[in-house]
Write a protein that binds this DNA or RNA. Structure first.
Lengths: 253, 253
DNA sequence: GCCTCAATTATGATTAGACATAAAGGAGGC
DNA sequence: GCCTCCTTTATGTCTAATCATAATTGAGGC
């Protein structure tokens, strides 16, 4: 059995990938109903003609994705779909504009270095310290048409060189990506009515529904930046394609 | 070396999990800057005192999460953070209400069996067939206060027994979960202004910004249901905690 | 100097074997 | 009958070894 088998197999896909897809379709198509017990690892391994390790990898992946529930001794069951939950992606603004075939441009509206205030907690999530902050406001443009209004606070201590940067037409997000490479962020998405000032900047009627995304970014323990992105609701949307629950997804730090 | 090592280790965490966390913090804290070459598998394995397979599992996971880029021969590099992208979770309505400590209730407003129309394509994503559809509208209530307005189409052919169900106070989503267990769905999130009718039902001012989630569900190739959920923007929000990009995330079928 | 091709090398996949762990189920004692 | 303890069993983790694959590197030919 040490000879690798040469049976036809979808090009570029591995053995356990193939098994994962096969079992997933058995579940989604209803052949294996929720709650049903599925054969034990060793039997499935034999049936697919692979080792138990490979089968384990495939079943483990399906369990992480939420399709299977595995317990020692009890064996493996098809999961009960828990809830109508899902996961949507927030894209990078520049990528999003360019992917829609339009020209991207950033235009700085205002820029100030000032002491931190109480109201900044909205963007930072925590009560602001005594330090100075860099406050920015700018527009992301698609074909020179307003696409997204950005209001941002930057911690000059965490982002070296931020106060020396003028952000004339370089989006602060893009600059921060270079300056403070790895970071973790938390996000919040809401719908809000555009205020008069916001509506004017985005060339919208006052009160127009907008998608608001607030992102707070940390690196090495300190807050780096807090940003509020305001998208005209008519123009922007988040999209996701999805099966069961999020599983453990990416990072949780 | 066949004796399992008994070095102290975070309780409940496996060896590769421990390594994953360790390396992730090296990256996030900036000790390993983006683009830098990291030691080869064999050396890291030796350094952590594990086999190459275990090291491979850890590095493979970090690569799936987007922290590392691995290429044959070239070795493994710390990834360049690509973009300010992220992923947010859409929770199940009932879970969400209950998790906020309020009582959940569903209240059916209208129910109709009728022929499919052109306008239904908005909820289905595809031009409707010639068949009949079940049309429903109802309110999700939190402590008897409007929380979410649901407008739904159901395919009676794909969801057996749907026409016989009256949905008096059972949310169609919950019922469908039982009747058509496994399915895949696509989602779209937007901000919209409440129309007069919607505002009245949700007890909001006309024009109030609302979060609109449209979900289209398929199972075994046929469309099962299309639903539009309308949340008062002031009350509802999506939240995510996140590191790098989505990786490959959950399912893509 | 430049191109081609083969050797090298790091990651990727797979396997068989071993031990760990948790839980179900049954045997035995009371 | 009921409780306790031990055996059984299925999954979980880890290892060492092997082959596969892709890309870089360098040697040789022109």
């Amino acid at each position: 059995m040490s000879a690798p088998d040469r049976t036809v197999r979808a090009k570029g896909s591995t053995r356990h990938d193939h098994i994962v897809e096969d079992i997933r379709s058995l579940i989604v198509d209803g052949c294996w109903p929720p709650g049903s017990q599925i054969p034990v690892e060793t039997e499935l391994a034999e049936r697919y003609g692979v080792s138990r390790m490979t089968m384990n990898k495939a079943l483990g992946q399906l369990a992480r994705e939420g399709f299977l529930v595995r317990r020692k001794k009890s064996g493996t069951q098809v999961a009960q779909p828990r809830a109508e939950s899902a996961v949507v992606a927030i894209a990078d603004i520049r990528d999003e504009v360019r992917n829609s075939g339009r020209a991207y441009r950033f235009h700085l509206l205002a820029r100030r270095v000032r002491a931190a205030r109480e109201e900044d907690a909205l963007l930072l999530g925590s009560p602001p310290g005594r330090a100075e902050v860099l406050w920015l406001q700018g527009l992301h443009l698609a074909d020179d048409h307003p696409f997204c209004l950005e209001t941002r606070l930057i911690n000059p201590e965490a982002a070296e060189g931020a106060t020396g940067q003028d952000f004339g037409d370089l989006a602060p997000g893009a600059w921060l990506l270079e300056a403070v490479p790895w970071s973790v962020a938390s996000h919040r998405v809401r719908a809000v009515n555009a205020t008069a000032a916001e509506a004017r900047l985005l060339a919208l009627p006052v009160g127009e529904a907008c998608l608001e995304i607030v992102r707070r970014t940390q690196a090495a323990g300190a807050w780096v930046t807090g940003v509020r992105l305001l998208y005209p609701g008519s123009e922007h949307q988040l999209v996701a394609n999805f099966g069961p629950e999020a599983g453990d997804g990416p990072v949780r730090s």
